Simulated scan of single mutants.
Amino acid sequence: MKVYHIGTISCETDQSGRELKAIGGISGYIKDLIDYSLKNNIKIGLIGKIFNYEELAGIDYIRVQDKVTGTNKFLIALLFKSLITKIPKDVVIHAHRPDHLAAFYFFTRRKSVVTLHGQQALTVNIRKSGVIRFIYRALENYSFKKVLAFIAVDSVTKSFYSNLYPEYKHKILKISTGVNTELFKPLDKLLCRKELGYKSSDKIVVYVGRVELPKRLDIIIKAIEKLVSMDPTYKLAIVGDGVSMNGIKKLVEEFGLNENIYFMGIRKRIELPKIFCAADISVLISDNEGSPLSVKESLACGVPVVANDVGDISEIVKSQHNGFIVNPNDLDEIVQKLAFAVSNSSAMKSACLESVKDFSIETVNHKVLQLYNTVFNEG
């Protein structure tokens, strides 16, 4: 059996070890699945685009694009690529959006799996025009008819799509994202701070993710502004980039927080444990999530999480145990819980580590490989 993933991932090259390092939630998910599959002697292909990497040892790489484009152009490129690409018969296709699968499947029909990383249909309805919504829904409908199995990364996503497509709800099963506990683990906080240039006395909150409107960094910055007004040692480290970066930097300047906000840009995945471990807490306030890796990665480093109740976060983060679940519309509550979590970060460390034991890469990806075998042997 061979598994071909459909997707676009961003990677960086470690020149010494030639190791492939993915950046971002879905990129990390695909990369971890690829690594685990290769370790278990499953041949792997990737249909899409891998940025910043040329040599893919052991991977059949089918390039779809040469540069970053919008979703619509990627779908068109996928459709044309399926016309000219010969895919072996003994292959399971694993896509990470329903519309991606539909575009490729139309001319290349193979047994398929799709991971639902959150409620994509809802996001499209909110953010896209009527024509785009119509096209997406048509592709999604086609995908649900043809795909043999869907992986919902959280209970909310499973419930959403089960209600949207009740005739296909038997195809949807929940398998959460996993965390690489060999990479993400506790490190010496003071040493990490020294290497990153932080002061030992700083109260550090870290955000790791895309800088986009749905991530509600504006709320986080407003909360930090209130905390800094009470205690100037509060700092916020923002790790990531995105289309809203200019607006966020403008907001930081308006609040006079230039000395309290660290813009760290996109970092290699191997650098993230040090960044998490240097912090007192991590934060995620978002309009929509599936099973965010950054939450599990923070907890695996022993760092509590303050977040709102989206995706599977409330299944993992328990208030006053390993962090806090907050109301994104209550700024005072967010400020209060951030301050409490910072003050009690060390006391929550053991609970953080305990909470991710069932979400290791080995546990989660073993379930995905079992699903591949089921799909491959079906029919």
Rank of each mutant, 00 (worst) to 15 (best):
V326C: 08
D330L: 03
M264T: 06
L236G: 14
G302I: 15
R269L: 01
E315N: 15
H100L: 10
A351H: 02
E12V: 06
S112C: 12
K357M: 10
L33W: 01
K73E: 08
G256T: 00
I62W: 04
G7N: 07
V356R: 04
V283E: 07
I313K: 05
K189Q: 12
M264S: 10
G311E: 01
S343C: 14
V364G: 01
A138W: 11
Q119M: 15
S162D: 10
H170K: 09
K249Y: 00
R210T: 08
G70N: 07
D330F: 02
V228F: 05
L371F: 10
H100M: 11
R63K: 07
F134N: 11
F255A: 05
E254H: 00
V206Q: 08
A351S: 02
P232E: 07
H366I: 06
G45Q: 07
V205G: 03
S346P: 04
V305W: 09
K318H: 08
R18E: 11
V147Y: 08
Y29H: 05
K128H: 10
L164S: 06
R267Y: 02
V114F: 12
K31F: 00
K274D: 05
N52K: 15
D218L: 13
N260S: 14
R193V: 13
I93F: 07
S314M: 10
D358L: 09
A279N: 06
Q336C: 14
L83V: 09
E271R: 04
L79F: 15
A149F: 11
G130P: 00
K39A: 09
N377R: 12
S82A: 15
F74A: 10
L183P: 00
S176C: 03
Q370D: 13
I361M: 00
V124S: 07
A57C: 15
E378V: 12
Y61N: 03
K367H: 08
S10M: 06
F134S: 14
V92S: 04
K296Q: 06
L338D: 10
F184R: 02
F74Y: 08
A77R: 12
I224Y: 11
S229G: 05
I59P: 03
V335H: 05
